[in-house]
Amino acid sequence: MFIINCPYCGERDQSEFSNGGEAHVARPKDPEQINDREWSEYVFVRANPKGIYYERWVHTHGCKKWFNAVRNTSTDKILKVYKLGEAPPSIKEFKNTLKSPSGEPEVGSGNFTVKKT
């Protein structure tokens, strides 16, 4: 459970929103020219990173508008929210957000004792 800062309505509970999966997936320009494997990748394969993830949300129980967000999937912390049509922020902006000052991941499922060795 987390709070999402809708660019139109402000901070609301996540349960008001629906997730739309990976953002910035481009439809192949010339679908007839690509082979089945490439088409299957476009249809079925989506990024699934443990870490920084660019995704779409829609404020279903609110303004019903779509927007994009950058979230760290290992902590569920939303790092940035931006409107559709705006250029995605560079991943470099978020690199240093993945670790706490002591160098460990902030929260999450990481096996800390193992990661120290």
């Binding site: 629906s18 997730n19 999966g21 699934n48 443990k50 993830y53 995704e55 999937t73 290992s74 902590t75 569920d76 929260v107 999450g108 499922s109």
Partner: peptide, 8 residues
């Protein structure tokens, strides 16, 4: 309804 690795 969203991708996550938090185990929460």
């Amino acid at each position: 309804g969203y991708n996550s690795f938090t185990q929460r």
